[in-house]
Amino acid sequence: QLNLPENTDDWTKEDVNQWLESHKIDQKHREILTEQDVNGAVLKWLKKEHLVDMGITHGPAIQIEELFKELRK
């Protein structure tokens, strides 16, 4: 059970990391997002292209984008 703020805009980069870990996103990809200071407010704007530009491969980038879309519903 994750204990994250209800509003994703309030998520810290550590919260984002924890959420991605719960969805089995590889540590190396989570570390990239942490290094790039991606918090919840930033995550909602990220598209696959942004994630790929940061060095995340296409498969996980699509997965992260789709997971966040599902979360926002």
Rank of each mutant, 00 (worst) to 15 (best):
N3P: 04
N3M: 06
N3C: 02
L4D: 06
L4N: 06
L4T: 07
P5R: 05
N7H: 09
N7V: 09
T8P: 09
T8C: 11
D9V: 05
D9N: 11
D9S: 10
D10A: 04
D10C: 12
W11N: 08
W11I: 10
T12Y: 00
T12D: 08
K13Y: 11
K13A: 11
K13Q: 09
K13D: 05
E14S: 04
E14M: 04
D15V: 03
D15A: 04
D15G: 01
V16W: 03
V16T: 01
V16D: 00
Q18E: 12
Q18D: 12
W19Y: 11
L20P: 00
L20N: 00
L20T: 01
E21K: 07
E21Y: 11
E21A: 07
S22N: 07
S22F: 09
H23I: 14
H23Q: 09
K24T: 09
K24N: 09
I25L: 06
I25H: 05
I25P: 01
I25S: 01
D26T: 06
Q27E: 11
Q27L: 06
Q27S: 11
Q27A: 08
K28C: 07
K28A: 08
H29Y: 08
E31P: 01
E31T: 04
E31D: 09
I32S: 05
L33V: 03
T34S: 04
E35V: 04
E35C: 04
E35T: 05
Q36W: 13
Q36N: 13
V38H: 03
V38G: 06
V38R: 01
V38E: 02
V38A: 11
V38K: 03
V38N: 01
N39A: 04
N39C: 03
N39F: 01
V42S: 15
L43E: 02
L43C: 13
K44R: 07
K44Y: 05
W45Q: 15
W45F: 11
L46F: 12
L46W: 06
L46C: 05
L46E: 02
L46R: 02
L46P: 01
H50L: 02
V52W: 14
V52A: 11
D53N: 09
D53K: 13
D53Y: 10
M54R: 12
M54C: 05
I56N: 00
G59K: 15
G59I: 14
G59V: 14
P60S: 15
P60L: 15
P60C: 15
A61H: 01
A61L: 08
A61C: 12
I62Y: 15
I62W: 14
I62A: 15
L67I: 03
F68G: 14
F68Q: 13
F68I: 13
F68Y: 05
K69W: 13
K69N: 04
K69I: 09
E70K: 11
E70D: 13
